[in-house]
């Protein structure tokens, strides 16, 4: 849910947000507003509805809830800074919500076919039963059985994905790694990823990128990103669209690194910096750091002092060294 909200927030940045486009009669209507935004107002047939809202702060926003259990069903509009229309339906129907789908993809549930919207979501309001949720991606027909119960909301998260860089810091001319973690509702022949990098940056998939993806298990895939030699120091955004679902990581390019980052990414065997490997303080790296005592630490402006070494060793110990 937080993922979906973050997605909506990140993509469009609207102030007013409503939990669902369709609510069941017994469900409270949930709305978020930004601090300073007008309090939400509910309208039914253009007339202000005297709703009793409860409100509390949630992750920097205000979460509003209104119990409309005895209010008429149908189309409602809630307005803060913007307005949002939603549908209230009886519990005679069941609801299938599909999230995190590539925008504009055709999704079929039973005999109904919907196109996902710009936020990569769609929904189906259907009688209870067992339905086949189908779509076609990369020439492959994807299918999932969905049990729909009256008055229940069945949420299908097409894909959950996240990206984590091996290092948030880089220097011009180095290569860093990006680990994409993805979980889908379907078996896929491979994990399709589209990358969007700053100009001059290059990306290369790891050897695992053509491995098949099994549904409901986490698939980890690596991408290697090369920072151009002439990259100016600054903050850069690397975006990976995983099966239509965008995830991003920020990389800070600097001329010099901190001694801890250098030690944690030092390839002791090759005696060189390897930002593409995950950060880790090992016995060998701690030993290498000790060997530098009194000497400059490469890629930094610092000398390995006994105090700095003590700090690095303490960190190594605390990480289970």
């Amino acid at each position: 849910m937080i993922l979906a909200l973050a997605l909506a927030f990140g993509m469009v940045g609207w102030a007013l947000e409503v939990a669902h486009p369709v609510f069941f009669a017994r469900e409270p209507v949930v709305v978020w507003t930004l601090p300073g935004e007008p309090n939400p107002k509910l309208f039914l047939h253009d007339a202000l509805w005297p709703a009793a809202w409860t409100c509390y702060e949630e992750e920097g926003r205000l979460r509003w809830e209104a119990d409309l259990r005895d209010a008429p069903l149908g189309i409602w509009i809630v307005c803060g800074q913007d307005c949002f229309s939603f549908l209230r339906v009886s519990e005679d129907y069941g609801l299938v919500e599909v999230h995190n789908v590539p925008p504009g993809l055709e999704i079929t549930l039973g005999e109904k076919t919907h196109l996902t919207d710009s936020r990569g979501t769609t929904f189906f309001l259907v009688p209870s039963g067992i339905y086949s949720l189908e779509t076609r991606v990369l020439g492959t027909r994807l299918k999932k059985q969905v049990h729909v119960y009256s008055g229940k909301r069945e949420k299908v998260v097409w894909i959950s994905a996240s990206v984590k860089p091996t290092s948030s810091w880089a220097i011009p001319g180095t290569r860093i790694g990006m680990t994409i973690a993805a979980q889908t509702e379907f078996d896929l022949p491979f994990l399709p990823v589209e990358i969007s990098l700053p100009p001059g940056w290059e990306g290369e998939p790891g050897p695992d990128h053509l491995f098949p993806v099994h549904k409901e298990t986490s698939a980890l895939r690596t991408w290697y990103i090369s920072v151009p030699k002439d990259a100016e120091p600054g903050e850069y955004l690397c975006t990976f669209t995983v099966l239509g679902f965008p995830v991003s990581a920020k990389i800070r390019v600097a001329e010099k690194l901190t001694p801890l980052v250098v030690v944690g990414h030092w390839d002791v065997r090759k005696n060189e910096l390897d930002l593409a490997s995950p950060f880790s303080l090992t016995f060998e790296r701690a030993l290498w750091a000790a060997s530098l005592l009194g000497q400059p630490v490469p890629y930094t402006d610092e000398i390995m002092t006994s105090e700095l070494l003590f700090e690095i060793l303490q960190r190594w110990v605390s990480e289970g060294g």
Binding site: V12, W14, L16, V18, P21, H45, D46, I75, I77, D82, C83, F84, S85, F86, L87, D117
Partner: peptide, 12 residues
């Protein structure tokens, strides 16, 4: 009949 768009900016 009232007509609008579901979601943001419904323009009823």
């Amino acid at each position: 009949v009232r007509l609008g768009k579901l979601g943001l900016h419904p323009l009823p």
